[in-house]
Design a protein around this nucleic acid. Sequence first.
DNA 1: CGCATTTGACCCGCGC
DNA 2: GCGCGGGTCAAATGCG
Length: 186
Amino acid sequence: MDSNNHHPQNPNPNLTCTYQNTEFFDTLPDFELSDYLMLEDGTEGDLSSQNVTSSDNVTGGSVESAGATSTNSNMQRNKPDQADFRVAFRTKSELEIMDDGFKWRKYGKKMVKNTPYPRNYYKCSSGGCNVKKRVERDREDSSYVITTYDGVHNHESPCVVYYNHTPLMVPHGWTLQPSSSQSSPS
DNA sequence: CGCATTTGACCCGCGC
DNA sequence: GCGCGGGTCAAATGCG
């Protein structure tokens, strides 16, 4: 609706995610992460009532893909390859458009019953990448945005390709960067 | 002119 | 078996 929603490729090029140290969220002045939701295949309940470790520090270093033994892989007609991994964030932000360095293309919008705010559906526009993203506002606090990632990117973030690959698993959209390194590669 | 966004319709799954 | 809700697709429109 807002014509200013045309998200650029990477408004936060210096967005360095030291996710395990939570420094990433401290680096962002515009929004802060309130809740980190770890949703696995079939474990996902309702985001509205999904209470997690709502602590300021996200000590979630144990993010793993949990789709290795899923019985119902073909839940959708899409490729069930990477649809087993799901992560949700609740972020305090005025804007629903939180670019994580990936390029997302909106493909749908829905009004949810329990929420006065619409839910937006995004797909990763990178070729061959079937990662989906769901963005909705918290019905309790409209200042919070709930972002749910479905799937795993099969490519690096366009804005952090110059970083070394890390063996650690990070939530979709977040690219890990060694805290010992400078955010400016030059 | 090309690409991204928007919006409505359609399809699928689940619950009653 | 029917209804409801959620999710996805496709065509149209607008903007760059």
